[in-house]
Nucleic acid binder design. Structure first.
Length: 394
DNA sequence: ATTGGTCGCTGT
DNA sequence: ACAGACAGCGACCAAT
């Protein structure tokens, strides 16, 4: 139970009128979609219920049940996307889903959490929840506010600064890949970052063995998936599914990746061995992350633990870095007598509520402290933006 | 009416 | 048959 006292308790401004209008817009679109969906389904049903939706799509309309199941046929996004060209109803359902999600989870839920005394939203940043040392955010979770879709981005416009202030957002760029380049001591990757290459383009160049300038958008997209996949211990099967290529071809990409970045492969094997020996792995600053089940006889459970052993040091070190930066930034805000407030942390991003007169000073300060929080074998870059709401700040 | 599991989806 | 890390939360649904 949170109690508002004179202690520092910043919160972030929220424009409830904006959310209310958005909610109405979404409602209108959702209702229109419902009508069309019922027409194709030849009757009303609860679209939110996976069970009922599955019955309509797969039993009544006879669409090929993509696959996947647990208690029925899966109606998840990746399944439906493959059915989109089979029947008009599918894309309508996908659109309905995304809008219903935005309305229910964000535009309707956020106003309920506005504090009556401050008129602001005061999330809880939990410091002892995650396995890796990241913070988590709850009541509400402000670390999963939409940004990817056009409709979703409108929700960010409802996050606003104090009157006369601006919001400033500072993002680490590719922090986890840089951490991995450092921890694995992979020269090829480090050189890319030192040259400030487009890292996904460079990876594509290595994997497909062509000049960077000849890398197509599609090749870059694939390389990007592989770069993130490596961080999570993705296998050939999942990569193939993600890129819509065969498992065999996906394996070629992964082999090629490790051929070009051999130290990354070595890093992965070393972390597994470390976990087997100690039942934990360590972050950049020496924090221990417990790795359960690493010696399990069940191959599936053991594989999961091995992926954790690789991912924890990377994700955990990135968490170390931003925590050091947060402390350093806060100290300087105090030391320099600024009135800017640090209001959000989103894993690789910090958001500040800043008086317009302090904007330049804060920007310089934040960039300096975030980029020098630790010294790696690669530079750490921070990109900064500002605006009159959270969307504009990006 | 409340609780817990499942499914699905948002972010990094 | 399985297959991608870390989270939080809403809707549904069955059990209490």
């Amino acid at each position: 139970m949170a109690v508002l006292t004179e202690i520092e308790w910043n919160g972030i401004g929220i424009d409830c009128d904006k959310l209310s209008h958005l909610s109405q817009d979404f409602s209108a679109q959702i209702m229109a979609l419902e009508e069309k969906i019922y027409t194709f389904a030849e009757g009303e049903f609860n679209i939110n219920s996976p069970k009922q939706l599955g019955e309509v799509l797969f039993d009544r309309l006879g669409l090929p049940h993509g696959k996947k199941t647990k208690t029925g046929w899966s109606t998840a996004v990746d399944v439906l996307q493959k059915l989109a060209d089979k029947h008009e109803i599918v894309s309508l359902v996908l659109e309905y889903r995304s809008l219903a999600k935005l309305k229910g989870t964000y535009t309707d839920a956020l106003p309920r959490l506005v504090h009556p005394d401050t008129g602001r939203i005061h999330t809880s940043f939990n410091q002892a929840v995650t396995a890796t040392g990241r913070l988590s955010s709850s009541d509400p979770n402000l670390q999963n506010i939409p940004i990817r879709s056009v409709a979703g981005r409108k929700i960010r416009e409802a996050f606003v600064p104090t009157a006369g202030h601006l919001l400033l957002a500072a993002d680490y760029s590719q922090i986890e890949l840089r951490v991995m380049a450092h921890l694995a001591n992979e020269q090829a990757l480090q050189q890319s970052f030192q040259r400030e290459d487009d890292i996904h383009q460079q990876t594509a160049s290595e994997i497909f063995d062509i000049f960077p300038a000849l890398v197509t958008d599609e090749m870059r997209r694939r390389a990007k998936t592989i770069n993130f996949g490596v961080l999570y211990g993705m296998g050939a099967f999942s990569l193939g599914k993600d890129l819509n290529i065969t498992t065999k071809e996906a394996k070629k990409y992964i082999d090629r990746y490790f051929e070009r970045y051999p130290q990354v492969n070595q890093f992965i094997e070393a972390r597994k061995e470390e976990a087997r020996q100690h039942l934990y792995v360590k972050t950049l600053l020496g924090r221990h992350c417990a790795v359960a089940d690493i010696n399990s006889k069940n191959g599936q459970i053991r594989s999961y633990a091995e992926r954790n052993a690789v991912n924890y040091p990377v994700q955990g070190s990135a968490a170390d870095i931003i925590k050091v930066a947060m402390i350093a930034v806060h100290k300087r805000l105090t030391a320099e007598g600024l009135h800017s407030k640090m209001v959000l942390q989103v894993h690789d991003e910090l958001v500040f509520d800043v008086p317009e007169a302090e904007l330049q000073q804060l920007q310089n300060l934040v960039q300096e402290e975030m980029e020098s929080a630790v010294t790696l074998r690669v530079p750490i870059n921070v990109s900064i933006g500002y605006g009159k709401n959270w969307r504009e700040a990006h």
